[in-house]
Design a protein around this nucleic acid. Structure first.
Lengths: 293, 293
DNA sequence: CCCAAAATGATCGATTTGACCGATTTTGAC
DNA sequence: GTCAAAATCGGTCAAATCGATCATTTTGGG
């Protein structure tokens, strides 16, 4: 796990000449730093960003210390989803990572990957589970694998503005940690410093977290359909805290849709990661006017 | 807090060789002082100045955070634990990562870090929670932060032998994902290909996973004390599957200790990560005779 | 199709870096 | 205080990188 690599390593990894890499560094196309002696050192995240922007294939990821089998194929979203379901059920972390990283390096946003691949894949796995084609351990293992991959993607995304803080999670009774983790990564990609507080947090504790952290954004991921009354009661507490601190409150997830009419007007509802990403980008632009160079 | 660090620490922190740091010190690029015996000591401010001058990112700022931690005394671990508790409660992911990576780079095994720092830290947080000094969101947030750090440590550990597979997790009713994830990382560090299946998996599903995956090792992490009868009943199913596939069964965690007399003789019990690491290393050596070069 | 501009890849001497080693200093434990 | 282990020292040397130059390939118009 190296963070800084040399031009030669990058050249080998993406199969171009060393000269080109050096030129790109000097022109700022690949942001890099120099040692005291003038040698270039390139952060892996710079390489990732460059690859994403040009849709270049990563030929030899192992040279960068990245897990093997990252980057090669151009995937169609629907096809990718089916393959992800297959490799997740087989417990094949390598294959799953390959597919998702290929999509990501191919320039797709995490939000799109979430909406078009990850969410439908787990929906499918959930279906298979309910008609007992899928064993519980397969579903749990799939969640674990996806969590690891999401964290790796998060490492490849530049950290957000430390002044734009977002927190969130799921309330009591909701144990699905995957969606709220996905939200965290999506928000970081949108320039936020986001941290999920995990799942099954009581509303009053969320309220305390909001008042203590004073985030600009708070998200609630509602996966399972739960008792609307109980949820709305807890939501009131959270809303109150948000108003006190001037925090924008965002709710999403399948479980929230049946109740969306009963939310008060200040609450923003997102039905997928794409909407959330747009909203987050808009909020970020509002709060801090476009910085000039 | 000491603000003088050694060339080695600086080298690790900014990801260059020790030789380079020494050269730069001698050339005055990084102002340093010398001890009576001629060893270089570098003020952290010098390093900061150098980094600013090259606009270089601090690759492992953790190393500069706690210079004392490369020492060997027990109080360092104790001190680290207290610091970890503090930064976890504050939700400071950076600081927590600093401390743990510092210990790790200082040569301590993940097992030791787990036993001496992570486990006692969460025990302490749990105490604070039960006497309501700690809010629930702080505990949940701490778990999330530690999970991310564990995954990063896992990325930094070389992948294990693909032929030595270990799986495991927690049974129904046990929602603590942290210990089983820690086990995964410890086993990988011991040369295994380990995958946690997550928490709250029914015993019969574990049995299916064992028969399907045929691992050489299966672990059960028992955090909460649960009904012994129910647990032992589920355990019987798992044990049966292990016997069928020749899988070694290992149980650990505070919740398992009160019942350890009632386990059958084939079951191995580990009371901490150190024991588990030793056992895993022993098993690995047994099953595959020492490969010669 | 042809040509010029731009991008890429290859090469070379000078410099930097990283690894190594025996000697010395520092550190932690007793 | 004493002692052994660990860390650091200073120096050497091979390998990697630098910057600059030049040949080759690709791109984009007319």
């Amino acid at each position: 796990m190296e963070d800084l690599v040399t031009p030669r390593q990058v050249a080998k990894a993406i199969d171009v000449s060393e000269s080109s890499v050096k030129r790109w560094c000097d022109r700022g196309i690949i942001p890099s730093v120099k040692t005291a002696g003038g040698h270039r050192r390139i952060p892996i995240s710079s390489v990732m960003t460059y690859l994403r922007s040009t849709s270049q294939p990563l030929v030899s990821p192992e040279v960068l210390g990245l897990p093997a089998a990252v980057g090669r194929t151009a995937w169609v979203l629907t096809r990718a989803r089916d393959e992800v379901v297959k490799s997740l059920l087989a417990g094949d972390e390598i294959k799953t990572r390959q597919i998702l990283f290929d999509l990501w390096l191919g320039g797709r946003s995490i939000a799109v990957i979430g909406d078009e691949v990850i969410a439908p894949a787990f929906e499918k796995i959930g279906e298979g589970w309910s008609c007992s084609e899928v064993d519980i351990y397969q579903e749990r293992r799939a969640v674990e694998i996806m969590l690891r991959i999401l964290f790796e993607l998060r490492l490849g995304t530049p950290p957000g503005d430390p002044g734009r803080i977002a927190i969130g999670g799921t309330t009591s009774g909701d144990n699905y940690s995957l969606p709220t983790t996905l939200v965290e990564v999506v928000l970081q990609a949108a320039g936020w410093t986001a941290r999920s507080m995990g799942s099954s947090v009581p509303p009053q504790s969320f309220a305390a977290a909001i008042e203590h952290t004073q985030p600009r954004l708070f998200w609630l991921s509602v996966s399972a359909s739960q008792s609307p009354e109980e949820f709305l009661e807890g939501l009131a507490l959270i809303e109150q805290a948000c108003q006190k601190t001037g925090t924008k409150l965002v709710i999403g997830g399948a479980g929230s849709l049946p109740m969306r009419e009963r939310f008060s007007s200040g609450v923003q509802v997102c039905s997928n990661m794409g909407e959330l990403s747009d909203l987050a980008t808009r909020l970020a632009a509002e709060s801090s006017p476009p910085a000039e160079l």
